[in-house]
């Protein structure tokens, strides 16, 4: 049923993780109400988790049947195509941005994130990146704070009412 003949780098490990997760979910679902009745709150979660586990085992079996890419080595391709440095850097920036938002507030955190990511991904002059992040931040702030009246995080480290 799976049409691919070669395995993507890291696919087998990912499917194994999903299988383990499904098995753990089934165990947890069983813990809700066990087999005490067919209309108990745990039955449907058990059915869902069992479907996940069965599908995962099936996917695992068909993934095992595929060939892994030999050239230039699976781990090399994995770090080049699936988890390249660029993605890791952006993920770190996003995590930092989301963590900093409640502390620094939406405006400062987003401004810093936009500037850093534009500078990293676009690689143009720093002044252009700065102007672009200021412009897009102003547009987002105007549209969502002023027009849509969305409450944005103020920032615990900032005095109240700054933004």
């Amino acid at each position: 049923m799976s049409g691919q003949s070669t395995r993507r780098p890291g696919e087998l490990a990912f499917i194994c993780l999903l299988t383990l997760f499904s098995a753990a979910a089934l165990w947890q679902a069983y813990g809700i109400s066990g087999f005490s009745g067919l209309s108990q709150p745990g039955v449907f979660p058990m059915l869902a988790a069992a479907t996940m586990l069965a599908s995962c085992l099936f996917i695992l079996a068909s993934t095992l049947r595929t060939r892994s890419s030999r050239e230039p080595g699976e781990s090399v391709v994995f770090w080049r195509d699936v988890l390249p440095v660029r993605l890791l850097v952006i993920l770190a920036m996003v995590a930092l941005y989301l963590y900093a938002m409640p502390w620094l507030g939406f405006v400062i955190a987003s401004g810093l994130f936009l500037f850093a990511s534009f500078a990293y991904l676009w690689r143009k002059n720093a002044l252009i990146s700065l102007a672009l992040s200021a412009g897009s931040l102003a547009a987002v702030y105007f549209l969502f704070r002023i027009v849509f009246e969305v409450v944005l995080p103020q920032g615990k480290l900032l005095p109240a009412g700054v933004f």
Binding site: M1, S2, G3, Q4, L18, S22, A48, A49, T51, M52, S55, C56, F58, I59, S62
Partner: peptide
């Protein structure tokens, strides 16, 4: 890509 993957995602 495959039925099993669709079923997993839905579940």
């Amino acid at each position: 890509e495959s039925f099993a993957k669709g079923a997993f995602a839905g579940a």
